[in-house]
C-alpha cells in the first residue's frame, strides 16, 4: 500500500518536503508574523491538503462517506482547528514552548489540510460558498483588528509587525476574493463535477 502511495501519488512527497522546509527554516519564518502566519501556517495547510489528496486517492475508505457525509465533519474539524490557531495566545504558545511548536506542526497539516482534502470536494456548493465568504469576512476583520489594536496581541511580536500583518491580511482577503470570483465569470463552474474516485469510495469502505 505504502509503495502504491509513493509511486502513484507524488503530492505526498511534496507535502513531506514542505513540512520539512517549514521546520528547518522555522527560525527565519517565525521571526515575523507575516512569514509565520501567512507563509508558514498556510504552507502547512497546503502540505496537509496534498498529503490528504494522496491518502484519499490510495485509501478511499479514509473519506468515511458515512460518518463524514457531505464532508461536513471534516470541514467542521478544520474550522475548529482554524479558530484555535487564530487566537493570538496560541501563536505565542507555538513560539514559546516545544509542546506548542509540536502541536502546530502536527495539528495544522492533519486537522486542517488532510481533513479538508478528504472532505471539501463532497461539500454542497452552498456550504462551500458560505465558508469561503466567511473566510474573507474573517480576514477582513482580523486585518482591521491587527492594524488598529493599540496593544500587542502576541507577546512575541512588535506592534509595528502586527500592523504589517494587518495590511498583508487585507491584501490577502482581496486577492483571495478575486481568485475565487473571477472563474465564476469566465468558466463553466457547474456544481456537478466531483472527482470520480468518490463514487468508488463507498464500494471500498463497506
Amino acid at each position: 500500500m505504502i509503495s502504491r502511495i509513493m509511486t502513484l501519488h507524488r503530492p505526498w512527497m511534496t507535502a513531506l518536503l514542505i513540512v520539512m522546509l517549514c521546520f528547518v527554516f522555522r527560525g527565519m519564518l517565525e521571526r515575523h508574523p507575516v512569514t509565520h502566519i501567512v507563509v508558514q501556517l498556510s504552507a502547512l495547510v497546503v502540505a496537509g491538503w496534498l498529503a490528504g489528496q494522496s491518502l484519499g486517492g490510495a485509501l478511499p475508505a479514509l473519506r468515511l462517506t458515512d460518518w463524514n457525509a457531505g464532508g461536513s465533519v471534516g470541514i467542521l474539524v478544520a474550522l475548529f482547528a482554524g479558530a484555535f490557531w487564530m487566537l493570538p495566545r496560541n501563536i505565542d504558545w507555538a513560539l514559546g514552548q516545544t509542546s506548542g511548536e509540536f502541536a502546530k506542526f502536527v495539528s495544522i497539516p492533519l486537522l486542517m489540510g488532510v481533513s479538508l482534502a478528504l472532505s471539501w470536494s463532497r461539500a454542497p456548493a452552498l456550504a462551500k460558498c458560505l465558508i469561503k465568504a466567511n473566510a474573507v469576512s474573517m480576514l477582513l476583520s482580523l486585518s482591521w483588528v491587527y492594524t488598529t489594536a493599540p496593544e500587542r496581541l502576541c507577546n512575541n511580536y512588535l506592534l509595528g509587525q502586527q500592523q504589517e500583518l494587518g495590511s498583508v491580511l487585507l491584501w490577502l482577503a482581496i486577492v483571495i476574493s478575486v481568485i475565487w470570483s473571477v472563474p465564476l465569470f469566465v468558466s463553466q463552474p457547474l456544481a456537478k463535477h466531483r472527482p470520480a474516485n468518490i463514487q468508488t469510495a463507498r464500494g471500498v469502505s463497506t
Binding site: 465568504a133 466567511n134 474573507v136 469576512s137 474573517m138 477582513l140 476583520s141 482591521w144 483588528v145 488598529t148 489594536a149 493599540p150 496593544e151 476574493s177
Partner: peptide, 26 residues
C-alpha cells in the same frame, strides 16, 4: 454578497469594539 461579507466584517469589528473599547477603531 460582497456587501454582506464586508458588512459582516464591520459588524464583527463593532462587536469587538464593544467589549474591548480600547481598540480605537478608525
Amino acid at each position: 454578497s460582497v456587501g454582506t461579507v464586508v458588512g459582516a466584517a464591520t459588524l464583527a469589528i463593532s462587536l469587538i469594539n464593544l467589549f474591548v473599547p480600547t481598540f480605537e477603531i478608525d
